[in-house]
Design a protein around this nucleic acid. Structure first.
Length: 645
RNA sequence: GCCGGAUUAGCUCAGCUGGUAGAGCAACUGAUUUGUAAUCAGUAGGUCGCGAGUUCGAAUCUUGCAUCCGGCACCA
């Protein structure tokens, strides 16, 4: 007999060699049904693997995070089995579980078509129905390598060859299919169920390296129940409805076209939104002691060579020839800000200097990277560089973090994660400089009280960075803000200040942005709100709509009053039914519709209808103005009741 | 840049195996003067992304290019 301690703390004795599944069955039949694996100590085991010694175990249920992960991995195996049955000439490579599902990378001369995916998916359902027993086998490394080479699975053989350490590897067999895998897996393919779907076909490089062979990647989604699968598909549809490219067109905010790929044509409403957000952030940084500058867009090659950008990003810069000169469109503003800093002599008393610019930057992004407003070639950064003494780094870092958190919160983003990215392989500056920079930035991050995760090797070429990732209304992560500590550029471009002792010193430079690029941030802002902007940011805040032409004169008066109160209003006098106008204006996501007819004209009132609201409110005109102007105050100009105490 | 898919009226889309283009909405004109998410009727609108080829004949087949979409790689 062996002693098993369960996750609720209770102990039970079981015969040696009992399996996790058998234990689950003794606990309850429903638990056994839900079980997909067990956790034994730190390891995850198959349900059918015999337990030989005293252990702590926990039954993993299919709907749990770990359970789903296992389920999705099983889906990947069933997928691979289906592929090998239908297209035996295919080599299978890796097939991990990922968020919401799994993928599998395949190598085959012919391309898979969407029709092939349908066929494969059908076969997957067959395999689940066959309920093939899944067994775990332990092989020697040599045997496994030889086996896969013999099968013609050269990618698999290469994976095994590169596995570190152990001489033994595990394989899982189901039906005629056998795959390398650490496991655990479900006891049989039937346990997977049918809540999966193949989603898309894509290309992916072998081992993630663009120098390698391109493989065919198939993405699938898999869930513990049909209901969860449906919920997921519904979530995708909802995400599609708030896609900024779609809303940009529907709400007439902007467009893009072939003649200017990667650049935006802002329409009046979109540009209004743009200016609102730009002015908002301008107000915020001005209050924090930033000064704003504007620097050139076309700069000589020699500057970019000196800064190091030419060497690292030369290929991604647009070059302009002028007689015997070579100029580049600026891809970023930092060298320019150093050039301003260098004008005149700076004293230690002048620091910190927080120099901001809404810098128009142009980068030749790879064509395949372009994506709506989120990845463009022509963008504006809410960029600023803080020149400071070494002993000011911590405080400046802390201040920036506070500002950034406040901005995100005011704009409706409540959840934030932070990543600390340290030195990349290809970098400028010596190791001692990097040691110092990383230590300072970490201290600053700690001083701000933020918790962060390490993102190794992802720093900029001139310094380590903090990356701020916000979560939108439907749970997607977006990296927007950044704070980068740089000792390298001030050195390369020779920025100095005079210290207390009259000697020259190098300032430290903090590169920082809250939005990142205005274009990208606006895309996120649109998607986060699904086009239903808070009143202060809505390009059109209110539309006066008449019931009949009898109301025209009064409607005009209401409209004039709104405009005089500084509201962004429009008027709809068209000869259409009020039903029609409301429908159209609602689809345009107009925050407020002010319906006026004969009755309102007589009484000097307005029937106020809020977007998304069922009921309307009949108010006196002045009351409507009060209500709207009050609601339209931007968050940073709103009196903060907590602080007024 | 790489892999796959798409590109038809202002928008959303239909057009099977090749016989030379269609709907809804929008626009325009007229009627209607309407009370909270589509009033009715009529009119007009397209070298089917661009170029080449096959064919008696190409939106449809082949091919090159461009852009977009989904990934991969990249992201100062």
């Amino acid at each position: 007999m062996i002693k098993i301690r369960l996750s609720d703390g209770s102990h039970r004795d079981f015969p040696k060699g009992i399996t996790g599944w058998e234990i689950a069955k003794t606990l309850s039949t429903s638990l056994a049904k839900e079980a997909v694996a067990i956790r034994i100590g730190e390891e995850l085991w198959d349900l059918t693997r015999p337990i030989e010694a005293d252990s702590d175990i926990e039954v993993i249920k299919r709907a749990s995070d770990v359970g789903l992960d296992i389920l999705r991995h099983d889906a990947a195996h069933v997928f691979a089995e289906a592929v090998k049955e239908l297209y035996p000439e295919t080599q299978i490579t890796i097939g991990p579980s990922i968020q919401d599902g799994f993928f599998y990378d395949l190598f085959r001369k012919e391309s898979f078509t969407p029709e092939d995916l349908t066929r494969i998916e059908e076969r997957m359902h067959d395999i689940v129905n066959r309920d093939e027993i899944v067994t775990r086998e332990v092989w020697s490394r040599e045997k496994a390598i030889a086996f896969f080479k013999d099968l013609g699975e050269f990618f698999k053989a290469e994976i095994i060859e590169d596995l570190p350490g152990t001489d033994e590897i595990t394989l899982y067999r189901q039906g005629k299919f056998i795959d390398l895998c650490r496991g655990p897996h479900l006891p049989s393919t039937g346990k997977l169920g049918h809540a999966f779907k193949l989603m898309k076909l894509a290309g992916a490089y072998w081992r993630g390296d663009s120098k390698n062979q391109m493989l065919q990647r198939v993405y699938g989604t898999a869930w513990s129940s049909e209901k969860d699968l449906q919920a997921y598909l519904t979530r995708l549809e909802e995400a599609e409805k708030r896609d900024h490219r779609r809303l940009g067109k529907e709400m007439d905010l902007f467009h893009m076209q072939e003649e200017a790929i990667g650049s935006v044509f802002w329409h009046p409403k979109g540009w209004t939104l743009y200016r609102i957000l730009e002015n908002y952030i301008r107000d915020k940084i001005t209050a924090e002691g930033y000064v704003e500058v504007r620097t050139p867009q076309l700069l000589d090659r020699s500057l970019w060579e000196a800064s190091g950008h030419w060497g690292k990003f030369g290929e991604n810069m647009f070059i302009v020839k002028d007689e015997d000169k070579t100029l580049a469109l600026k891809p970023m503003s930092c060298p320019c800000h150093i050039l301003i800093f260098r004008q005149g002599i700076k004293s230690y008393r002048d620091l910190p200097i927080r120099m901001a610019e809404f810098g128009s930057c142009i980068r030749n992004e790879p064509s395949g990277a372009l994506q709506g407003l989120t990845r463009v070639r022509s963008m504006v950064q809410d960029d600023a560089h803080i020149f400071c003494r070494e002993d000011q780094i911590e405080e400046e870092t802390r201040k920036f973090c506070v500002l950034l958190l406040n901005v995100y919160k005011e704009l409706g983003f409540d959840e934030l994660t932070v990543k600390f990215s340290d030195r990349p392989e290809v970098r400028a500056g010596d190791d001692a400089t990097w040691d110092k920079a990383e230590a300072h930035l970490e201290a600053g991050a700690r001083a701000s009280g933020l918790s962060y995760t390490l993102n190794p090797g992802e720093g900029a070429f001139y310094g380590p960075k903090l990356e701020f990732v916000l979560k939108d209304a439907i749970g997607r992560d977006w990296q927007c803000g950044t704070l980068q500590l740089d000792f390298v550029l001030p050195e390369r471009l020779d920025a100095t200040y005079i210290g207390e002792d009259g000697k020259k010193y190098r300032p430290a430079m903090l590169h920082r942005a809250i939005f990142g690029s205005l274009e990208r941030f606006i895309a996120i802002f649109i998607e986060h709100h699904g086009g239903k902007f808070p009143l202060w940011a809505a390009p059109v805040q209110a539309v006066v709509a008449t019931v009949t032409q009898e109301g025209d004169a009064y409607a005009q008066k209401v409209y004039d009053t709104l405009k005089a109160a500084g509201l962004r209003a429009e008027i709809d006098l068209r000869n259409e039914s009020i039903k029609y106008k409301i429908r159209e204006l609602s689809l345009q996501k107009t925050p407020y519709i002010l319906v006026v007819g004969k009755k309102e004209a007589l009484e000097g009132t307005v029937a106020l209808r809020k977007l998304g609201g069922e009921a309307q409110e009949v108010l006196a005109l002045h009351a409507v103005i009060d209500k709207l102007t009050n609601e339209a105050i931007p968050p940073h100009k709103r009196p903060n009741l907590d602080e007024n105490k």
